[in-house]
Design a protein around this nucleic acid. Structure first.
Lengths: 189, 189
DNA sequence: TACAACATGTACCGATCGGTACAGACAGGC
DNA sequence: GCCTGTCTGTACCGATCGGTACATGTTGTA
């Protein structure tokens, strides 16, 4: 038995992918076991709280990624426009042009919504507010920035749904390209 | 046919609501039995194909509703702008200001996607194309109408996700109000 | 009234669910 | 060497899953 010792953090990516593909209820322990190449023993050793703790660990990692990688730059980076451009590029890359689903969005629509309601809310509100801040720092007044940020977050989520529904990743790319034109100030030349 | 307490069509609304709330996998037969107030015997009498046939029956009804109520007017009604306004009003009402989830969208994100892939695709493409037709009939040329329709469908879907995620129905209303301004020609006065 | 057809509730099936128990396999400290 | 605590696989648990079988209503027709 090639007993390769795995740390808890090692299994998070595989874990995240299973939840993304099958949803919370659909990600059965046997499926999780296959994908992570871990038996139930190991799984419950790392996550004594079972499936719910696994999902929360995944959500922790996602939260941290978005916070440091996207939300913080949107709020604080000197060049707000550059932060917005980076956000759109990161979004495209993170969701693999729409081939990958947003786990938080999927949870929001599924039957596990109540279980993670607070976290879902924080994620969406965080994205919207960080983007609104960047838009304001770019020169828009609050009355314009807030609705525009709201539109953008919804459009991204809807883009993921639509791209998956029509099995057309290029759709997501087109949406983001058009979104960029709405979010960035008209280039002055 | 009035001799039975319930006809097959009578249970469709309850059936649709269960699928909407819990998703395809999450809607267990016992839950369906409760909500429809029907035992397994009756359920399998009406739907010999089991859960899949139930879901397809629900999708049939949804398809028909959207086709006759929204897509056809968008394509054919003399006053294209009026059809677009009606579409937005119907959308708001149908989804109960975002309190209600789009079953097709939820299916697209869930693990039952492959099972209904073709129907999901048809629904989304149908909406987009019907709206694009209306926009074109309103005066926009094809190069503008198609992307705008694409944006609109994604925005509506994303609005449902976001409204549910943040538990804020007014968000969906705001999104649709802003969308109306983008879809309708500037009022000439 | 007798009968066929539909409608319905209940018992049951094998499979799988999330979770637990527990016995080995391995490591580091002594 | 040994012990202890961390990993790991496996057998098992009760509950529930989707689906089937079938006996018992209930109804329209004759």
């Amino acid at each position: 038995m090639a007993r390769t010792v795995k740390a808890r953090a090692d299994v998070l990516p595989a874990l995240a992918e299973v939840f993304r593909e099958y949803g919370y209820e659909g990600a059965s322990l046997s499926l999780i076991g296959q994908r992570t190449e871990l038996g139930k023993g190991s799984l419950y050793n790392f996550f004594p709280g079972g499936k719910e703790e696994m999902a929360n660990a995944v959500l922790d990692e996602i939260d941290e990624w978005f916070e440091t990688r996207m939300f913080k730059p949107l709020r604080e980076e000197a060049d707000a426009s550059a932060a917005i451009r980076a956000m759109l590029a990161d979004t495209l890359a993170y969701f693999r042009s729409g081939r990958r689903v947003c786990l938080i969005g999927a949870l929001a629509l599924g039957d596990a919504r109540d279980r993670f309601a607070e976290r879902i809310n924080v994620y969406f509100a965080g994205w919207r507010d960080a983007l609104a801040t960047a838009l304001a720092r770019q020169g828009l007044d609050e009355a314009e920035a807030q609705p525009l940020a709201e539109d953008a977050v919804a459009l991204i989520q809807g883009g993921l749904v639509a791209a998956r529904a029509m099995d057309d990743p290029s759709l997501f790319e087109r949406l983001l390209a058009r979104l960029e034109m709405r979010l960035l100030p008209a280039p002055k030349n």
